[in-house]
Design a protein around this nucleic acid. Sequence first.
RNA 1: GGGCCCGUAGCUCAGUGGUAGAGCAUCUGCCUUUUAAGCAGAGGGUCGGAGGUUCGAGACCUCCCGGGCUCACCA
Length: 521
Amino acid sequence: MQEQNDLIKSRLDALEQIKKLGVNPYPYRFDVTANSAEVLNSFKDPANENEAEAQKQKIVSLAGRIAAIRRMGKASFCHIKDDAGKIQVYIRQNDVGEQMYKLFKLLDIGDIIGVNGFVFRTKMGEISIHVTSFELLTKSIHPLPVVKEEVTETGEKIVHDAFADVELRYRQRYVDLIVNEPVKDTFIKRTKIIQLIRATLEKNGFFEVETPTLQTVYGGANARPFVTHHHTLDIPLYLRVSNELFLKRLIVGGFNRVYEFVKDFRNEGIDRTHNPEFTQVEWYQAYGDYNDSMNLFEEVVEQACISVHGKTKIDYQGTELDFKRPWKRLKMVDAISERNGIDVLNMKKADIVKFMKERKIEFDSAISHSKGLLIAALFEETCEESLIQPAFIIEHPLDTTPLCKPLREYSMHQLEEMKNDPEQVIFAERFEPYIYKWELGNSYSELNDPILQRKLLEEQAERGRAGEGDTHPLDEDFIKSIEVGMPPTTGVGLGVDRLVMLLTNSHSIRDVIFFPLMKPL
RNA sequence: GGGCCCGUAGCUCAGUGGUAGAGCAUCUGCCUUUUAAGCAGAGGGUCGGAGGUUCGAGACCUCCCGGGCUCACCA
């Protein structure tokens, strides 16, 4: 049962009195003819006497939640909030009648009302609605935080007693959205960004598809899955960690350009850039390579930025970021060279290990068998922090992924030789876009050699997750689809939440997910 | 999971071992162009929870719960 403090009691008491007045506190509908923004914009010149007279003849109907009440005996001002903003309304007993004014006195902050009236300007100059009649549309019985807003003479807004407890804001997002205006704006931008990505992909001929969330075998990313169980079939099921392997099956099936926005689920740590469920968009393009993906990635992100900011330069947490195309493209080994002054290609595996140990660069000893993985670890530890402006890191060691093609410049013969030499590193046609130190995505010239694909996935399955003990399962059906034949293909994954964080200047991923995971109380 | 910090009224916050406070909100009264409306009065607390130290704990100690930052894992 709900807490029975005096605030709730007085609201429940008001609810009873409203019912006694013969008023249904939860009626069915209300005809809305305008929103607050339209009303405010409709009054062109408040100082113009003729316009003021004309406005009096026009009745508008507007509905919203009471955000503030200032009562002065037999007349009152309220601010009501609707989908478009906030507007002041003026209610007088003379206009609405004694009975309705009695009802008005029983209203609280948080109640939803519909008002009819004409637009006017108060002595203090605020465009408001002079109410001629109103209806209670929903009685609220739970008190809202009372946030007060002061507008200084210079037009600056000062918010007093803002609802700031982050835990309560995330747990009760509906309250957060009601009382903290910038929150709603962030989520509107989130939707705009997603719409823009979709529009850009559609413009480029991509086709939106849906693939399974519940999977009998998980794959496509190196991550711990959430496990669930199907009762009737009595089998374990996994929540997807990626949709990559299914989208490739669709390329095999003859869809040349597909994309999907998905929730991926990864059973890993939670911090300000990680939520257990997060949104990715992945797209796959037959007959293209990772250069095509890079170009489209830039376009998608630049256009998303312009769609919410109207420009490519933005501020993120005090740092200026410029999303203007083209972005810098930097080979991983060159990035390492720039930061560390070493040429890893001309170093023995043992020298790289020595270098990392000397610099106290930590790495999992399980990777020391692979020069490629050592290079990737060295990159992550020494270069990521310097990647502030949008940039593509390209040409990762092939060992970092089982799903990517080696560079096209290697001859078949060269590849065979290099594979057998632990001092050689094969590089892959892969890129990762970095912005503000974060990986924002991942892309390959997709591996479509079924023999090599099987070999690499089998190796990964054998290795399992280093230190975790659980093995990475082999998706036989996926390999079968590659055996059927996948055309040359490139694919991209883009982390939507992080892009939204950057474009909305949000400090935490929890600020861009309506209902982030919270421990139960 | 480790380290550091936080949790006091519906909300925002004071309170450095000695009678639990303020502003807003709420309730009562007054107030027909106010705007962080105003004036007069009133009520509201298991100080996150459980133990402990002490004559005495909101404060000190231990454990637990929730959150923030950070490291690890990861995107």
